[in-house]
């Protein structure tokens, strides 16, 4: 499985909210480059903020997809705002808590917060907040056509949906 930046969905309020977690692991190769040891000091493995954003986009994207039985091709259209202060290191857990603000046939707006759990100092610590806009690809303004198959909620996402029971929401294509 590739490019999954959440490990599991832990809460789902249908039509409103979805919460997912991700465990940051030293087995992730990119952490050895972000940042490696150098003349300035020892290695400092930190989860890149761009991947925290990706995790929130995946969490929110699944939530938006669930609104339409995963029939729509939901794509991230716009990062309206994002503020992330604080870092996530190997051994810590990230939690993405997303709610739908607005949605219609063309897409959806979501709002979410990112929290961190450190097993040595238990308790969730707020890292930031992210507002996103998603578009339904088949209803794009230019009228451009895309393949029938839903490549957004393809094999990668299916595993997450199955392991968390969200696959019961998947409706057959009309």
């Amino acid at each position: 499985m590739r490019w999954m930046w959440i490990d599991s969905v832990v809460e789902h309020e249908p039509g409103r909210r979805l919460v997912a977690v991700k465990n940051c692991s030293l087995a992730e190769e990119h952490l050895h480059d972000h940042f490696p040891a150098g003349p300035e000091g020892p290695a400092d493995p930190v989860m890149p903020a761009s991947l925290l954003l990706e995790g929130m986009a995946q969490t929110s994207g699944i939530l938006v997809g669930s609104l339409g039985g995963f029939r729509e091709k939901v794509v991230l259209a716009k990062i309206v705002s994002a503020s992330i202060e604080g870092e996530v290191r190997p051994g810590q857990t990230v939690r993405y808590d997303a709610v739908v603000e607005q949605h219609d046939a063309a897409g959806a707006a979501t709002k979410g917060v990112i929290d961190r759990w450190d097993h040595r100092r238990p308790g969730w610590v707020r890292l930031g907040a992210v507002e996103l806009v998603f578009s339904h690809l088949d209803r794009n303004r230019s009228g451009q056509k895309f393949p029938e198959e839903n490549f957004v909620f393809g094999e990668n996402f299916r595993t997450i949906l199955q392991t968390t029971g969200l696959d019961r929401l998947v409706s057959a294509r009309d």
């Binding site: 716009k78 309206v80 607005q102 063309a106 806009v133 578009s135 303004r141």
Partner: peptide, 9 residues
């Protein structure tokens, strides 16, 4: 073009 959806919301 994608800003239009945001503006509508």
């Amino acid at each position: 073009s994608i800003d239009f959806l945001d503006i509508v919301f």
